[in-house]
Design a protein around this nucleic acid. Structure first.
Lengths: 124, 124
DNA sequence: AGCTTGGTCAACCATTTGGTTGAATATGCG
DNA sequence: CGCATATTCAACCAAATGGTTGACCAAGCT
């Protein structure tokens, strides 16, 4: 799939893995699910509860997150537990570090970013 | 758009900005373009040259990257120059840091990641 | 002015995405 | 066994995505 005619860095940039990870992250529902799982592992039904959306829709989102490697699902009894799996996220994050020679992660910048998001939301 | 009934962190997670940034990153052509721009600013035609795809298609990809804030475009004379704009990327990267309590970015990990991508490509 | 080059616009097309509903498949409980 | 709970499957739908082509506009060259 990756042709030798391309320069080396293409192998990293073109990878399907990044496709699925970034595509998974591009949906706000899925990001919200990840954030929920950050606090604790959850059953599918509990994940679905805060959303105004069918259980089936959430189930689909969860398989997308699973295929991206962002979460794992383990069936125990009749409930399927969802668990955050930060490795894929870390891989994508690390890929991003290749750009812009980012200075080591700055938590202040994160807070400023969140504030911007917040005020941007107020304007609308 | 973001409802006050949601907990605070939703404002960050649900933001449209992240939607467009991650969606932009989910396409391998666009990631390749970013990687090219990492080396130098380029005119639209030159960006398009290595791809087996119409100029119009590349032009669309560039507007998507621009709307995501990942690049900027400035028209000088009759050529439009594309320039990497790492702030949006940084914002997304910083968002990711919220997950998994990532250890400070590890360049060795990046190299290992690239090697994995490489060998994965060979297998296929 | 007239040609060429750089880039976008508009219309179109196939495929994917994100959602729905209703039926189906476990698994546990009394 | 018979019922309720947890989750997925299948079919369907509207809208978005990623590409094409051909016409179009803008800027420089002779």
């Amino acid at each position: 799939m990756v042709d030798q005619a391309f320069p080396l860095w293409f192998s990293g940039v073109m990878s399907d893995d990044l496709d699925t990870v970034f595509a998974a992250l591009a949906d706000p529902t899925r990001r919200a699910i990840l954030a929920m799982l950050l606090e604790d592992d959850m059953a599918v039904t509990d994940v679905a509860e805060p959303f105004e959306m069918s259980l089936a829709a959430i189930s689909k989102h969860l398989t997308i997150l699973t295929r991206a490697g962002l979460i794992s699902q383990e069936k125990r009894g009749r409930v399927k537990w969802c668990k955050l799996e930060p490795d894929a996220l870390r891989a994508a994050s690390v890929w991003m570090q290749g750009f812009g020679q980012f200075e080591p992660v700055n938590l202040d910048a994160f807070e400023r970013f969140l504030e911007n998001q917040l005020s941007a939301g107020d304007e609308a």
